[in-house]
Design a protein around this nucleic acid. Structure first.
Lengths: 343, 343
DNA sequence: TAATTTAACATTATCGTTAATGTTAACGTT
DNA sequence: AACGTTAACATTAACGATAATGTTAAATTA
């Protein structure tokens, strides 16, 4: 029963109908007698027909496929995103390609070309922001896309869904300051990334509001590449840099910081209070209770998919979507839960 | 410059050559003058030609695409897998679809049909093992596939790459027993899953070797679904079940167990020693030092891709690949590091 | 009753490539 | 000189589906 794949023609021959009629019947189009439709559908099931999406796509120009391009699926933040995006997409009968870039420009470029070559209907991308050129290319070629998590301020026509990074940075820093930590180390992401810049804005606003001087030496850029955060925190501890609060660009960096602190015999939150970003621990129950800034990844993902599908289905629409999803402070043990008492 | 997409024909017209010649030139096939090849390649670059993979695939029968079907990409274990698979696949110019199943049979079935419909060249799947039927269908239809992480003992013709689960279960349990924990709670995965059964075999072997009686009430199946592990551990603690060692089917469950223990005021490793499985913390530096069983996800992923590509390129080969990647005990603080001293 | 509409199906062209052959001029062979 | 080779390109036929039209008999309407 190796059986070559069953095609529309096989069904047509068997049913004594034209290929087109069979196609229309299966696609629930009009001008098909109910009896015929049933006959064909039964036959299709019986013969194990699985449509060749390739052929259909070539003709229709739609692949029911979107590409998701992110730096690193192994990072729980992106893992969760990808999962949520896939789930939303699947509801609309879309399948997703996942391509990793390591936040490398060349890889990002190749990822985009791959996506175009595969004729995806649209792209959801968390751009490395090492250059806007490739993204501009998408725009120029009319390939629908939505940025997720990061935006290009200088490109007013790029749609995006981000979270309120400035507010998140503000809330985290303000909480640490309010709790008596006047020297807050900010382990930020690379400054080319919009969310890193905006979280920093929030950090600074909290400092200004508190009437405290901003210590530039406590603001450090960390490359998400493996080990960078650990190396930096180690150095700071050995140099006996003076800070008691830590705000990290994301939970992974916060974990690494806590990891090193622990190795050096320091206690959290007694010696150092830490707040991360992404609130991954709402999905992953770790024994280390990290306070964090929540940004609903489910909402962001769903929004990104919805916007993308809208753009796919309305190629001539000119609106630009700039969605900012709310962020909130989630307190756990790593800050001593000082303010309230949450789970 | 919205410009419709440039096709081979556009290049051909511009160059005054036939479409086929252009195609062959770009694909570095023979029977093309070097000068012509250069001319065409330059022209292609100049006009921004991006091949339509769809059309090519329809003709050639190959899509350079594989589907990766797993239960949950948000689980770091699968996130890492997917990343590694994508990386390996990309080296061979393959792109991956990612489809989640939540270990649900119906979703798995749909995922497989989606993959077939998209004409993937092959499938890497971590099966839910709720039924072997859909996988058998793949076999029958000659769709190349490789199982990863789980296997069907009763299906000798299914290729797979797993880790040495029995050994892992043995090592973990033996270490706990050797450290003086005579009552080891095993939070196992669902018994339909081969790796759960095999890790349990290892658990039992360690008990037998130690000459200790196996306590069936300390062996509990946990559904990976959210919250199950937490609920169970809570119950056990409230019932004051007597155990001091915990071996968990995977790190996520181990974390959840430690999470609950911590909530209840217990200390690790002083009150309870814990060992997980998957050694996720070799990739993710968490402040909680969980001992675990390492199974090289990078190796498993690479092997799965290699085997799959081999099967794709040798459709008539009859060998069956049954690869078992080694596992090892990695000791960290959650077991008190009693035996050795690792990172 | 003749004309018109409609239901239900058939034909044809096409999506953009690539595989399988054709073609032709230049060259070499005996 | 007659023939075979070869290099380099052209032509033709798919791949399997769908969009855009055609066709025809039955039903409806004027």
């Amino acid at each position: 029963m190796e059986g070559k794949k069953v095609t529309l023609r096989d069904l047509a021959v068997k049913a004594g109908l034209s290929v087109n009629t069979v196609s229309r019947a299966l696609k629930d189009k009009e001008d098909i007698a109910e009896s015929t439709r049933k006959l064909i559908k039964d036959l299709a099931k019986e013969m194990g027909y699985v449509g060749n999406a390739l052929a259909g796509s070539l003709r229709s120009g739609l692949t029911k496929t979107i590409a998701v391009i992110v730096s690193d699926v192994a990072n729980p933040h992106f893992g969760i995103m990808v999962k949520d995006i896939e789930k939303s997409a699947r509801k609309h009968n879309y399948t997703i390609f996942v391509i990793g870039t390591e936040d490398d420009h060349e890889m990002e470029e190749r990822a985009i070309y791959t996506a175009i070559g595969k004729n995806v209907d649209g792209i959801i991308i968390c751009p490395s922001q090492r250059s806007a050129d490739t993204i501009r290319l998408l725009k120029k070629n009319g390939v629908p896309f939505v940025l997720i998590g990061r935006r290009f301020e200088e490109e007013p026509e790029f749609d995006y869904v981000i979270c309120d990074d400035e507010k998140g940075g503000y809330l985290a820093t303000k909480h640490l300051l309010d709790s008596g930590h006047e020297r807050v180390l900010y382990l930020n992401g690379p400054s080319r990334i919009s969310s890193a810049r905006e979280r920093l804005d929030g950090y600074k606003r909290a400092y200004r509001e508190a009437g405290l001087p901003i210590r530039e030496d406590l603001i450090i850029d960390v490359e998400p590449a493996a080990g960078d955060a650990r190396r930096i925190v180690k150095q700071l501890l050995e140099r006996k840099a003076d800070f008691t609060g830590i705000f990290a660009f994301n939970d992974v960096i916060a974990w690494e910081a806590a990891y090193v602190l622990q190795k050096y015999g320091h206690r959290v939150p007694e010696d150092y209070a830490i707040i991360g970003f992404d609130n991954i621990q709402s999905r992953l129950f770790l024994p280390f209770q990290l306070s964090s800034i929540s940004n609903s990844k489910g909402k962001m993902s769903k929004r990104a998919v919805d916007i993308l599908l809208y753009k796919i289905n309305h190629p001539d629409s000119t609106e630009t979507y700039r969605d900012v999803i709310d962020t909130a402070l989630i307190l756990r043990d790593s800050t001593g839960r000082s303010a309230s008492e949450q789970g």
